[in-house]
């Protein structure tokens, strides 16, 4: 008898609470978010000349010499695919990981010989969508980018330094450079003739 009573309550309770918390709550939050923070709620999108270029929060693949390259990405074959977010999941003693890092270090050194290669430049992020580089990893690429654009390294370096975001509130997280924003500024300031 008591089992049956509680079973009926369980069914009704599931229905009522699903209506409240499965529909009511997320829809109210969606409404408030769209009203209060429309840009953030829709993905912090960057639109240029009416065309969607990306999101300032999501990294994009760059491989041309004239651009700053983001970190390696395991998300999708070209990397930085937001429908396939994730990392390599390779362990610390994985031969595949160590070999890949060694190859990336070799490639990086040919761009900028004699400078230590910052670890974040040659390892993949957890999301595969990391929008940032450490300032060291961005500065490391200045000689190559300047060369490819025929620009002065000092001017390019200055642009990178202007794009360094410090720790949030002065102490949270790590200093970083948003690669997509940096590359867009690069195109604006040092255009390349095609």
């Amino acid at each position: 008898m008591r089992v049956l009573r509680n079973l009926i309550v369980a069914v009704l309770m599931t229905v009522v609470t699903t209506a409240l918390f499965g529909f009511g709550y997320p829809l109210v939050v969606t409404g408030l978010a769209q009203w209060l923070f429309p840009a953030q709620a829709n993905g912090s999108l960057i639109v240029r000349d009416g065309r969607l270029i990306g999101s300032r929060l999501l990294g994009q693949p760059f491989s041309a010499d004239r651009y700053f390259h983001p970190r390696p990405s395991a998300a999708g074959p070209a990397g930085y695919d937001p429908t396939a977010s994730g990392g390599t999941n390779l362990g610390p003693t994985s031969k595949a990981l160590i070999d890949a890092v060694r190859a990336r270090v070799a490639a990086a050194r040919s761009d900028n010989p004699g400078t230590p290669v910052p670890v974040d430049l040659v390892t993949s992020s957890g999301s595969g969508l990391d929008p940032d580089l450490s300032p060291a990893a961005a500065l490391f690429q200045v000689p190559r980018v300047a060369r490819a654009r025929g620009a002065g390294p000092a001017a390019v370096r200055q642009l990178v330094e202007a794009h360094i975001e410090g720790r949030q509130l002065g102490f949270l997280g790590e200093p970083r450079v948003n690669v997509l924003e940096l590359n867009l500024a690069l195109d604006a300031q040092f255009p390349v003739r095609h």
Partner: peptide
Amino acid sequence: NPLLTAAGADQHVTALCPGGNMEGKEVRFG
């Protein structure tokens, strides 16, 4: 990870780089 150092990656902490084992980690969190 000493194996990453052997492969040539610089894991030192500096004011401009979080250093350490950054495989699988995000730059903004370090």
